[in-house]
Design a protein around this nucleic acid. Sequence first.
DNA 1: TCTGGGGTCCTAGGACCC
DNA 2: TCTGGGGTCCTAGGACCC
Length: 440
Amino acid sequence: MPAPDTPAEPAPDGALPDDSGCHVLHVDMDAFYASVEVRDRPELTGRPVVVGGLGPRSVVLSATYEARAFGVRSAMPVGRARRLCPQAVYIPPRHGLYGEVSREVMAVFRSITPEVEPLSLDEAFLDVSGSRRRLGSPARIARLIRAQVREQQGITCSVGVAPVKFAAKIASARCKPDGLLVVPAADLLGFLHPLPASALWGVGEHAEDVLARLGLRTVGDIAHVPLATLQRELGAAGEHLWTLAWGRDERRVVPQREEKSVGAEETFPADVDDPEVIRRELLRLSGRTAHALRAAGCVARTISVKLRLASFKTITRSRTLAEPTDVAREIYATACALYEGSGLDARARLRLVGVRAAGLRPAAGAARQLAFGDRPAGWREAERAVDQIARRFGSDAIRPAALFPGDRQAPSPGPSGSEGRKPSSKAWEEARILENEPGI
DNA sequence: TCTGGGGTCCTAGGACCC
DNA sequence: TCTGGGGTCCTAGGACCC
């Protein structure tokens, strides 16, 4: 529901809001995952719908506004959401479907301008300064986008229009759902300064606490405090916030951003203290990471592992390789060495493990020096063949022997490998705590 | 309250080199 | 031989975003 002070979107006479000085749009789908589910099942319209179960110890992915009215929020455990809103329909996510809808929505944006910077599946920045002559003012373009998305996808979105990126993002959040909010350049500070400090992009729980300690509760408070005070308390982030509070944001809309790292991580359905199970998980995650690298046409120099203990304390260990790689076998060997050298107790109970590859560069041209006995080219070819088989027959068709159920062979990066046990199955199958209850 | 998985960016200390 | 300072890289951790 739009806040009472939100300017009404189309004025009764159809007049467009003043958008002078604006050229950035932030488009955000409303309750994206839940909206897509409702679109597919019209009988759910107007009822509380919760898409939940992001992981094996699930949290909520998205909820319709009807469910949100009961206090259901994303990043909330599904069990808690159920207590808040037992009458809601709980739906397991269908990621493939959301990906399809996202591609179609992004195609709508790109039909407006090539200057589209996706932020996630369901939101993007657009710089429409080059589209004015063809399509009209930014406010008119925003209206056009909202109409097209609704017509083509049957879901609603909200659009913020502003002179700078972060203000457009705040504006779209302030007019949800199904809204349009234009912040003309002349009104920028008048719009920003009454907002709570947490509205600024980059103010999370920690920064909000620090600001509250300084007595700074609104964006205007931040703007009027000496810059040096913010720098002392928050470092570079302090200066960043102060600049934003004065409506300045030099960041441009960047159509394609280079990835800085790729990785994979997984929470175990129950805490694990068996090193063999942990190594097998590292093998699987190394395979996914290597696959992502090859799909992106990249090699990586730095491999890191993330280990989250049962207590939720998280440690990371990383190593920079002499030569960059996209080979699962090399990533796995490094990840195992990092895990074994982590200094954790041999039977430490782990909640989550992760593998990440950073220091990316294009694979083409990343020639490498071969040492005697080193066969990376052979492994790379083998893994590329695996990619092709997986593309053709599905990712379940082929995987390392150690990951097949019933196979007793342990993953062995080197001489330290030993006997393994039954692998953990996919998180999703473990986490069947959700069900469809269309009758409720 | 009992916490997913994908990321980005910043900080700080230490090693190393010139 | 001992010393200083700056730059760069590596590593670990943490805040933050959706």
